[in-house]
Amino acid sequence: MPLQIGVFPFGLAFGILGVESGLSQLQTLLLSSIVFAGASQIVFAQLTSTMTPASIIIGTVGIVNLRHVLYGISLSEYLRDLPLRWRLVLAYLITDESFAVSYKRFSEEKKTTSMHYHLLGSGLTLWFSWQIATFLGIFVGHFVPESLNLEFAIPLTFIAIIAISIKDKPRLTVFLISALMAIILKDLPWNLWIIGSALIAISAGVLFSNLRKRTQ
């Protein structure tokens, strides 16, 4: 249940933002079904509205979604023996939220042959909530008064995800450096501040955690 509640304001905000940033209603809606990844859709809308070259948009989307690789690696222990059609469908449904609930379930309970239905369930639930929320954002969004600042739901959702992820000193370092770099690099052309800040912060995190291991 909390899955849908959390994702709903975010999807609504994306629907509004998509149309506002110059995408057509259909493009905004289909971004939610073709890409189906909140953070990168936000970035996509932001970058297209500021005349960013296509290669940079696609590259930024790729970097933002790299975290899925980690989810896939964790899940592959449970899913790698499934038929290809299952792996294709389940891969498409991997999101921060569905991964969080289903991986927890997988790692806590005994392996069974039907456990992948849990991921199918959490993934589809999220998929439908996301499509409906986007749809409402596109078509009903302009009735929402501007003073409600619904778009602020986007950074708020990210703040929550970040805060939950800061579990140790290397991650805190990554947080602080990426925040600082976002300010320093803000004037880079083509919105390269996203890729730039992310790569520098990731490198700093790797360096920091390796130095820490060596001194321990």
Binding site: V64, R67, L70, A179, A201
Partner: peptide, 18 residues
Amino acid sequence: QNGLQYVSIAVLTPIVVN
């Protein structure tokens, strides 16, 4: 593997700050 663990924070934080 190590680097991948930091991707979420490293991409979401700049978006929030911005």
